[in-house]
Design a binder for these strands. Structure first.
Lengths: 199, 199
DNA sequence: CGGTATAAGTAAACAGTGTTGACTTGTCAA
DNA sequence: TTGACAAGTCAACACTGTTTACTTATACCG
């Protein structure tokens, strides 16, 4: 076997075979298969076979198939540069993100979500991810009164656009002129962020 | 457990065999369980048990479990009274619908929409349903240029709010004052419907 | 250098899923 | 009364994720 002994940094306390390398192989295979075919469509045994390891190792290293998914997802950055910039430009940055990223190809995670959004495991992981990686940072960034509600409205729109895209699969949103769509979404997102007591 | 299987009539040996009645029992049990727990969480055997029926009958009558869900969601009216009224009041009516109906219990169709992507066949069903029962009526009602795009934005918001509600499970949207939420949503929906040529 | 503790890796089973085909049984028309 | 045929049943199939008891390789220690 090709045993790339990477005695790198940290506690290299791996006895026996290379624990970290095996972990990584499972993770790589899982990411690849989840991205290509979706979470629910890929079985644990198939991931194990692709990684060249025994099935039981998935549960040994990741607790369960869900844990494997959680780790794959946790690797990805959600909003790369959304929070870099001033508050006033936030709606436009979000709109551009939606149109040019979410609406287009999407990230590996998004594609996995589109394939198997019905799976309870995936929903659970997605749920936690949305909260900690999107909702809470966004609420903190916009600040002000009712920041949580405002952020929820924005995230609703973002999630909904993704959902509709996969439901429509080539409908009005995808056919529409992207630049104009950005303008429209910017206005809508701004509307989500405004409003409130001074109604 | 309100599982009264044999309250009088039933496909036991006593009563005669009634194809339509049996079909309906399966459908009723499925709708109830899907609504309460979701599609993936409910097994065929559980549906059959709740209906007091053999498992194989599900596939006999509905082809497969997915066919059962397709029939459940096909029964529902989506927007009962949204299109009764003037165009100006549409945003508010939609907002009220979201806050007082979608945000509450949630219908099987709504759940199905959120879960639709996992099954290709089901996806097709939902796609047509969203288009013919929501998107197209809405687009026809609002009229004007880019009606399809405007309608898509609105539907995105509606779908997203439903999704986020489940994701948050008692977060900002549910805790927020309903009347104020209606006001906010009215403004956002109006923003979805406006915009366009004046860019 | 050899033994051994210990972790990595394995095999097989478990309980569950959706689905299928062969079977039995009830009902109704001839 | 008796077939015919549909309605309903049963057991099995091929999967799934997960767990348990087991084997095996290796890094440390005497």
């Amino acid at each position: 076997m090709t045993n790339e002994v990477d005695a790198g940094p940290g506690p290299d306390r791996a006895r026996g075979r290379d624990r970290e390398a095996t972990r990584k192989r499972i993770l790589d295979s899982a990411r690849e298969l989840f991205t290509a075919e979706g979470y629910a469509q890929v079985s644990s045994r198939r991931i194990a076979a692709a990684a060249g390891v025994n099935v039981a190792l998935i549960n040994r290293y990741f607790g369960a198939k869900r844990g494997l998914l959680a780790e794959v997802i946790a690797e990805e950055a959600v909003f790369p540069k959304i929070f870099e910039g001033d508050r006033a430009g936030l709606p436009r940055r979000l709109a551009e993100h939606v149109v040019y990223r979410s609406l287009g190809e999407g990230t590996p995670l998004q594609r996995a979500l589109e394939h198997s959004a019905s799976d309870p495991d995936l929903r659970q992981v997605h749920k936690e991810r949305v909260k900690s990686a999107i909702l809470e940072p966004l609420a903190a960034f916009i600040g002000g009164p009712d920041a949580g509600t405002r952020a929820s409205l924005v995230v609703s729109l973002l999630l909904g656009v993704g959902t509709l895209k996969r439901v429509e699969s080539g409908g009005a949103l995808l056919d529409h002129d992207p630049a104009d769509l950005v303008d429209r979404l910017t206005a809508v997102i701004a509307a989500c962020l405004e409003g409130g007591p001074a109604r």
